[in-house]
Amino acid sequence: MFVVSKWSFAFVPPVTMGFFRVALGALALWLGVVATNRRGSRGGDGGAGIDRADWPAFVGLGGWVAVTIATQFLGTELTNASQGSLLTVLTPVFAVVLGASVLGERITRSKAGGIALAAVGTAVVLAGQYDLTTIAAGNAVGVGLLVVASFAWAGYTVWGVSVVRKYSALTAATYSTIAATPMLAVLAAIELAVLGRGIGSIPVTAESIFATAYLGLASTAAAWYLWYKGLEFVSAGTVAVFYFLQPVVGISLGALLLGEQIGAGFVVGSLVVGIGVWIVSRDRTDNDREQRSGHDQ
């Protein structure tokens, strides 16, 4: 997602691309709701089964989405690769802290140890690929935006737990994404006005169509649904620790698709990250057991 979005900013402004991404993702998710509704599957309620009192929760989740996308894409545009990769892994840290303070999720010693180990492994991975001395030399505004993006995604994760548990991952992902779409439309309009550009200035090319399709269908509709699907089984802190795998996957794809070189530090760091994630995923807190029991019922 970071590779494709950074590449797409050459022809579509960041927030505007964020709007296109979320709008397409919302459409794909809504079609998924319609399809499951026809089959009578759980989660395909089409909105009819949502209590009126819960709609503000969906709008609130949409707000977290809008903040995440706007700050993430602007921050990615303003920072270098090492800054972006390192700062985005603040998400699991924020999610664990919010999960404990907002939801009362228990942080066991093994979970804390696994998270710490995964964080160390991530640092080793990034040190093996990037010159980390350039982190402090980058754009301070971009760094700040990425920190906000990491916190906002943690908020989307934690405050989404109750909605996912009451309805379903598909319902929660769909209507929060739909709620975020007009918010990002306003921000995109402001961005284009500041840049002195109109919507007609956005090129309709094979590249822009591919970027929008990938970001909207894979990085939004599929990824956000699967992210929330994890919350049906385990706690927010457990789900969020898998975010540490993001730099490992991103660098691996860079090597596979772009021919980038990876060194021994990447291999060692990846193993450490994997061990840390495995420890956390094996740790079953009371919260995890309750959520799995509720899902099975």
Rank of each mutant, 00 (worst) to 15 (best):
V148R: 01
M17V: 07
L98A: 15
V241R: 00
G142R: 13
S8G: 10
T205Q: 12
A222R: 07
L192W: 04
I279A: 10
G276Y: 03
E260K: 05
T68K: 04
T133C: 05
W30M: 13
A173R: 00
V148H: 01
G265D: 02
V120Q: 08
I190H: 11
A81G: 07
A127M: 04
L126W: 09
T181A: 15
Q291L: 15
G128N: 02
L98E: 09
Y167K: 12
G237C: 04
P13R: 08
G294R: 15
S270P: 05
V239H: 00
S281T: 10
A70H: 10
L90K: 10
T71S: 13
I251Y: 02
S219Y: 06
L98Y: 14
G63N: 04
Q261V: 09
R21D: 14
V277M: 13
L217P: 13
L187P: 06
T79F: 06
T220V: 03
G43T: 06
V194G: 05
Q83T: 12
L231Q: 13
F210L: 15
R197T: 02
R106G: 08
V59F: 14
G47M: 02
A193R: 15
A35C: 07
V268H: 03
T133P: 05
V102D: 03
G263C: 05
R39S: 08
G294Q: 12
N287R: 13
S85P: 05
T16S: 11
G142T: 07
G99W: 01
S8N: 06
L192Q: 07
S176D: 14
G75H: 11
V280P: 00
T71V: 05
I251K: 00
P14S: 08
T16Y: 08
L29N: 02
F266P: 10
I190R: 11
I135V: 10
I115N: 10
S176G: 12
E290Y: 09
